[in-house]
Design a protein around this nucleic acid. Sequence first.
DNA 1: TTGTAGGCGTTATCAA
DNA 2: TTGATAACGCCTACAA
Lengths: 341, 341
Amino acid sequence: MRTTIRDVAHRLNLSITTVSRALDGYDDVSEDTRKLVTETAQEMGYAPNRAARQLRRQRTDTIGYIIPANSAGFADPFFSEFIAGLGDEAAAHSYDLLVSTAPPASPIEQALYRRWVQGGKVDGMIVNRICLDDWRLEHLAEQSVPHVSLERSLSQLDFIGIEADSYNGFLELMAYLVNQGHRRIAYMGASPELKIDHDRYAGYQAGLDAAHIAENSTFVARADLTPEGGYQTAQILLMLAHPPTAIVCVNDLTAIGTMHAAHERGLKVGRDIAIAGFDGIADAAHTQPPLTTLDQPVYAIARRLVMMLMALINNKSLEERQVRIRPKLLIRESTGGRMNN
Amino acid sequence: MRTTIRDVAHRLNLSITTVSRALDGYDDVSEDTRKLVTETAQEMGYAPNRAARQLRRQRTDTIGYIIPANSAGFADPFFSEFIAGLGDEAAAHSYDLLVSTAPPASPIEQALYRRWVQGGKVDGMIVNRICLDDWRLEHLAEQSVPHVSLERSLSQLDFIGIEADSYNGFLELMAYLVNQGHRRIAYMGASPELKIDHDRYAGYQAGLDAAHIAENSTFVARADLTPEGGYQTAQILLMLAHPPTAIVCVNDLTAIGTMHAAHERGLKVGRDIAIAGFDGIADAAHTQPPLTTLDQPVYAIARRLVMMLMALINNKSLEERQVRIRPKLLIRESTGGRMNN
DNA sequence: TTGTAGGCGTTATCAA
DNA sequence: TTGATAACGCCTACAA
């Protein structure tokens, strides 16, 4: 049996009330008593039972995040960085982070939401990998569960969270490539239901438009955000009779796979073909050649999301309900340039 | 207010006892009642309050894992894969996974353990990145909290978990390199307190020994498991008057940084220098050139760890308390070979 | 400054 | 087959 507050109280011949208040820092307890209590509690290895506290306080001091894992054994550094950010910021508020994985829109995911949200296992949720039409956001809004998201859905009335300005990021990237002389630029995206694909594709199109280049449908391909998917799909693009001279990818992992495919066909990336990604994962700086990418501060974004969620949960006012972050174009050798970084 | 079991009972003019038992699948409740209850509960969106259930049952159906994050903004794909494995297997047992991050052996980490373990927030713990002398394992054993670990410490009396056979893996890798004609082989490790560094370094030494090569202390370097660290540290090795012709790295990220440094000095990896890693992260197959590595099935290991922990928590018997996994040598172009994969 | 007592929502024991 | 009732450990009005 673990030590409870009763044990501590009993040892000191005090009431549990006094012990409770001493430990919680109420000011209606004498300094001597407080000191005695905290020391004894420490010594006995007492820590308040979380379940009991939760039941009583009607809050869990826990937030939840479900990793949208499509395939078993996936491994996007984006998530380790994201989770590290969530965990660190949560810990800074003495909150815990509950994590699970579930394929998007699967029954597993729905069961999890039920268990966590209806069962009061979490006080709020973090959501990402948003779809244009996303049941999770609707569900959470309906249940009035505090939540923040990275990216927003179209149906969302009152969006609270952060979004990357993918559109303008891609526009900038496209302008850069056009400026380098590229006219045959391909887009390697992800599932078109994803908000990020939607935005980045739109940025791609706008970039073509601005340069008065007609869109070529054979230059639009979609993979699954993994290096493997990028590798496979890039092969198709590269086998075209008139292949592209540049490929912009929806994320870094896809770009890494794409580079691999290009190398394999004997192309020198950065000279024979330009390839760029999105995310700015740590690896991207160390690929060969280093990868041009639209860098977004994933760790900082995660922390900021938790800060926003904390405010929401505790009914604090939010200075900004919707934060827009412009990714930073890091030009490296994979697109031939050496302008910075 | 969320719907409670009372609401359901009230709506059906039944006692909460009956509702509880109907939902939990006891057989002393009539089929009609059960059907009625489950349907109504579903319709009302009832899910049992977790805190109350935990308090009553004295178990949380939750396991914990603390990511040993040394630096902010780290991002090792090892962890996303590991966490995905933990989450998936936990979910398969209807368990939840509580995650946090803390620098190893920091006060933050200790406070977390206190909150989770003493506070009964988790039923068991997963531990990895084991140090030769690891306070976490001692603490958990002392408190008799169920736990399993990836790797073991020296002080551990009764180790339950999985360990990679790093020693023999490195031995095999060294034999391969020697066989390729390498005599000047460097070791790029991590903190020597880590069990993985200890084992892999020992394997490196044994490999030298077997080939009757004297150890050269300038060929032993240590980084911090990141690409950045590998990059920095490799520069030192490569600037030696007589640099190594091969570098074996303690993990893939370090190897990626090392490759970067080599490229930067104009070396063609796989021809002018051989570089190998450990882990088998997905990226490793798509680096340029593809990275030779000792592949360990991280996702499967994570799942297996949770299975073992489940057995421990539920007092089931464990067929194997200590599992040893031999990593698989994947020879790719970064060491010049093309033998497989 | 300290103590008494009620209840958070469940599950389990016992009685009907 | 069902229902009343007592905990689980904690916090907090209220009383002393």
